[in-house]
């Protein structure tokens, strides 16, 4: 039996701006729910009346513990205290929240306070006695397996399996258990100015000179391949070229390339 704590935040739909379950936290909960032989407890720091918390219950949680942290207060001390009380082997949450500061710092601060290791970019978790094998999902589809001694904090990214859909009836039946906590106002947050995010236009490198048609062509034309063209190569040569390419792109570990694992 492994004890898992899932930290769940309230997200924000990018188009409608409405509150929802946070995508990465939901993936974290999905990993937790899929773990065999795990006792999953879920925590949220914030308003226990927030309707979107029901989405997590809809995924199959029976109870969700909500630390009643007032808006504008720092949730970290409350979370740390609650987690200390439970003493989980594994703490799972998303890499970054969708609303609020969204700094991605909360799990690191919690891990620091509890003295746990942190594994980021998790795509899959498999627990053995005292350790967990975590598969990290790295850019361009690369995967790396790391082994971490428990207890640990594992941060899930979007390479993890998609979260199951919440079921209306389960969401309705699940229980939200509020816990009163004392939280300090977050002075840093109070000092910040909040503005909606908007995409900045990207400046294109515009080629100068030539006719309009030539400039357009320079912008849109596909560049000729940078690779080598082998015509009727002998098999050894072709294999070497493929191998060199894979080593160059770090799919294979080349000779003398110690940390090129991935």
């Amino acid at each position: 039996m492994i004890r898992v704590a899932a930290l769940l935040s309230i997200g924000r739909h990018p188009a409608s701006g409405r509150a929802r379950r946070a995508g990465l936290d939901a993936r974290g909960l999905e990993l937790a729910l899929r773990m065999p032989n795990a006792e999953v407890r879920a925590f949220h720091a914030g308003d226990p009346h927030a309707a979107s918390l029901r989405d997590y219950l809809g995924m199959g949680l029976e109870t969700l513990n909500v630390l009643n942290v007032a808006p504008g207060c720092d949730p970290v001390p409350a979370l740390v205290e609650a987690l200390r009380g439970v003493g989980p082997d594994l703490i799972i949450c998303g890499m970054r929240a969708e609303a609020g500061e969204g700094s991605g710092m909360v799990p690191y601060l919690i891990a620091e306070a509890l003295g746990h290791a942190v594994v980021c970019d998790a795509a899959a978790i498999e627990c053995a006695s005292g350790t967990a094998r975590v598969v990290q999902g790295l850019p361009r589809g690369r995967r790396r397996e790391v082994v971490v001694t428990l207890p640990a904090v594992v941060l899930v990214n979007s390479a993890a399996p998609a979260a199951r859909a919440p079921a209306f009836a389960r969401a309705r039946r699940g229980r939200i258990v509020p816990h009163p906590v004392e939280a300090r106002e977050d002075a840093f947050l109070a000092a910040c100015e909040m503005r909606p995010w908007r995409a900045r236009p990207k400046r294109m490198a515009v080629p100068s000179g030539g006719s309009a048609q030539e400039r357009m062509k320079a912008l849109t034309e596909a560049k000729a391949g940078e690779g080598r063209l082998l015509v009727n190569p002998v098999p050894e040569e072709a294999a070497r070229a493929v191998r060199d390419y894979l080593v160059e792109k770090r799919f294979l570990r080349g000779a003398g390339d110690g940390d090129g694992r991935g």
Binding site: R20, G58, R164, A165, P166, A167, F168, A169, R170
Partner: peptide, 15 residues
Amino acid sequence: LEKASAPGKAPGVLE
């Protein structure tokens, strides 16, 4: 409503 088991793209679309 009880199992959230609609297949394919349905769960995402419903959300």
